[in-house]
């Protein structure tokens, strides 16, 4: 049994090592956010400061010094709108494709396969021209539209997969009780699918929140910039202020990390639901 215990210890140590290496950049991020400017460029470097300071967090949150709040609000507007549109349009559409006799069902199912071979970067040129022709260049609406390119098909296919796991008999029972299609959708399917819908919302929100590509193409006015493009612009235009950069990076990640943690078990389950559920 001694050998077994030693083996377990070795494997546990390996897990600890992988976790340590994977997380270490974020430890450094936090440590640097708490360093004074002098300490952040000291040699040899230290991971954690001797005397932590919150000055960088105060600077980042001070609108007079740093437009973080404005970028944050813009990111939120873009990510929330994209997620809302993808979830509402996606739920309704996916329900119809899963449960109603709709022409072109087959076509759609083979279409989702092609979608996996696709990416937003392929459409930057036509989207750029279309957005310009519509007079939307420079607006946050443009970024929302572009973010839907990759997220809407994913929302449709993820929600469709989920709706198909809900047995038809459940709704048939509801119809027997005199509920209409709409009532059953509203009172039975949607409440039952809330975890899936929330997960898709978070998934789309994260993609839009992280988007740099389209924001960099469409937004040039600092008043409308989202976090990724705004932070990059801000930090490349002057000398690196590491503490401030790291504080801003942490705060940029915070909302998506919290949202992800809230739906983690659904998302990590849903990614692989095809194999796990019958």
């Amino acid at each position: 049994m001694k050998r077994k215990a030693a083996r377990k210890l070795a494997l546990d140590a390996l897990v600890a090592l992988i976790v340590l290496v994977a997380v270490s950049p974020f430890v450094v991020m936090l440590g640097t956010a708490l360093k004074t400017p002098a300490e952040s460029v000291a040699y040899p470097p230290k991971i954690m400061p001797a005397r932590p300071t919150l000055m960088h967090f105060a600077d980042v949150l001070d609108p007079a010094k740093f437009p973080f709040a404005r970028y944050f609000a813009n990111s939120f507007i873009v990510a929330f709108s994209t997620a809302l549109i993808a979830v509402v349009v996606g739920s309704v559409g996916a329900y119809a494709f899963a449960k109603l006799p709709v022409p072109g069902k087959r076509f759609l199912e083979s279409g989702t396969f092609v979608v996996y071979m696709f990416s937003g970067i392929l459409l930057v040129v036509p989207l750029f021209r279309i957005i310009a022709a519509l007079g939307l260049y420079g607006s946050r609406v443009a970024v929302v539209i572009a973010c839907l390119v990759s997220t809407l098909p994913a929302a449709l296919s993820m929600l469709g997969n989920y709706f198909r796991t809900i047995p038809d008999s459940l709704e048939e029972a509801a119809f027997m009780d005199g509920l209409s299609r709409l009532q059953s959708l509203w009172r039975i399917i949607l409440p039952l699918s809330l975890p899936a819908i929330m997960s898709v919302f978070v998934y789309v929100f994260m993609i839009a929140w992280n988007d740099f590509l389209f924001a960099s193409i469409f937004l040039s006015d600092p008043a409308k910039m989202t976090l990724p493009i705004g932070l990059r612009q801000f930090f490349s235009s002057q000398d690196y202020v590491w503490g401030r950069m790291m504080a801003a990076s942490l705060l940029t990640g915070l909302p998506v990390v919290i949202m992800f943690a809230a739906v983690e078990k659904y998302i990590t389950g849903g990614l692989t639901s095809g194999g796990v559920k019958n």
């Binding site: 994977a22 997380v23 950049p25 974020f26 450094v28 991020m29 640097t32 994260m206 929140w209 992280n210 740099f212 976090l227 990724p228 932070l231 990059r232 930090f235 950069m245 790291m246 990076s249 942490l250 940029t252 990640g253 998506v256 990390v257 992800f260």
Partner: peptide, 13 residues
Amino acid sequence: LSYVMPVISSVFV
């Protein structure tokens, strides 16, 4: 964590 963190934050660090 590294999968969830926005790419801009990870790039900076």
